[in-house]
Design a protein around this nucleic acid. Structure first.
Lengths: 233, 233
DNA sequence: CGTGGAGTTGAACGATGTCAATCTTAGTGG
DNA sequence: CCACTAAGATTGACATCGTTCAACTCCACG
């Protein structure tokens, strides 16, 4: 039996309530087949079309999973954060290229060992299934976000995504760190870089956010922010 | 342990190569806990927010899984075809409303029984995991389609989706049946109904398709069609 | 100091949404 | 069997928003 797609960009906790990615027990079992790797910012972890021999579990750092449109533009399917699993597969092959945006540390999980482990451990596999379903919902939400035409709305959703990933880091909850470039944001939101820039400054003019520097944004008022996130036209 | 999201709109074979949804063995085991139900066109199978006690496996007919934007517009996450599993859950609750577009026949799978079955049968669960991952990729492709601005491109992708689901039915392979309304197409592609109409007629003017009637479209030349699908700006 | 890449800003164009009117279709009842 | 009706689909005119192209600014790095 060919090992079909196991992995996917699985994110632990993106929208609202977060649950631990794996049980302690599950982590221990995975640790037995895992090894730690370090990557520099800009390193490519996997190439689209490559044969997959392993998938990664991010420990720290941020990455992006993307592919190319026929016209050469880049489309970012997902940003990858700590606790995420990296490796969207089709059969044995990667369907996306994955690149480190910041320096990145990750566990390497050999594919064959992982498949065997999951097949023999329904409980652990169950956690992966749960995760995959959760991930699916996030992808659908992303799709919705993209189908809404408002550039402002798309940017707000991205900021909210980053906000939820920043909080655990203990930093000031109203400060959002943007590890990726404007071009990455554009490729993720499906907008032009110029529109991203204009949109962010527009949000600043409206008093919703404050641009501290290119990598850092402050949310003026959480309530106003979430209100805009939900109801903006 | 609360049974987390199991189900998701799982489609068997959407893009290119199709594999049977479940092994014969798997089907037999599921059949033991399943019962058959019939629905009329327009019937609502599940309500967003309802507590889920079961999920469905479509035998025949077409459905749609959708939710509402704050402004009241409807967003269609996915069209559901035979062999699909219906029931995107979050915890025990449905996150989407599901409605029958055509008369629909489906197996009902009680949730608790299904969870137990999967937990005790790693092989069967594996097929569900595989399916969920496949589904995830489809959702991502849908997201890409929506992020591409060209209305024509979005329509071509929808037509291709329907084409792949029509072929098995043995009908003339160049004929595509559209079971859903223009409004549904609009809600799926993120376009306005008027744009859908204009786009289809535009494709006809370009000689790519022919509008036979409101529910039926013919592809003039497969090669031209797929070429447009891939490379259209 | 330059130099180059990333980010910002401006102006014009084009695609799509919106509104309103018209046409088609399917379904109903006489 | 036909006329009527209401919902769906199409078409046109116009407004809006985002893209595109181009120039400019701001840093980071040598």
């Amino acid at each position: 039996m060919s090992p079909p797609l196991i992995a996917v960009p699985l994110r632990a906790d993106k929208i609202g309530i977060s649950k631990p990615f794996l049980s302690v027990e599950g982590r221990q079992k995975l640790a037995l087949i895992a090894s730690l790797s370090h990557y520099d910012a800009g390193d490519i972890l996997f190439h689209e079309g490559d044969r997959a021999t392993s998938i990664l579990n991010i420990v720290s750092g941020v990455g992006k999973s993307y592919s190319f449109l026929p016209d050469g533009r880049e489309v970012i399917q997902a940003f990858l954060f700590p606790n995420d699993l990296i490796g969207p597969l089709d059969g044995d092959y990667f369907v996306n290229t994955v690149k480190a945006i910041t320096p990145l540390v990750a566990y390497t999980l050999p594919l064959t060992a992982l498949v065997q482990l999951l097949q023999s451990d329904p409980n652990l596999q169950w956690q992966f299934l749960t995760k995959a379903c959760h991930e699916l919902r996030l992808a659908q939400q992303h799709a919705i976000a993209l189908s809404q035409n408002s550039a402002k709305q798309r940017l707000l959703m991205l900021l909210n995504l980053l906000r939820l990933h920043n909080e655990p880091r203990g930093a000031n909850a109203s400060q959002i760190h943007l590890p990726m470039s404007r071009a990455d944001i554009a490729d993720y939101t499906g907008l032009a870089v110029e529109t991203v820039s204009r949109g962010l400054h527009q949000l600043q003019r409206e008093g919703i956010i404050r641009l501290i520097n290119q990598q850092c944004i402050e949310i003026i008022d959480q309530k106003v922010f979430t209100a805009a996130l939900v109801s903006e036209a």
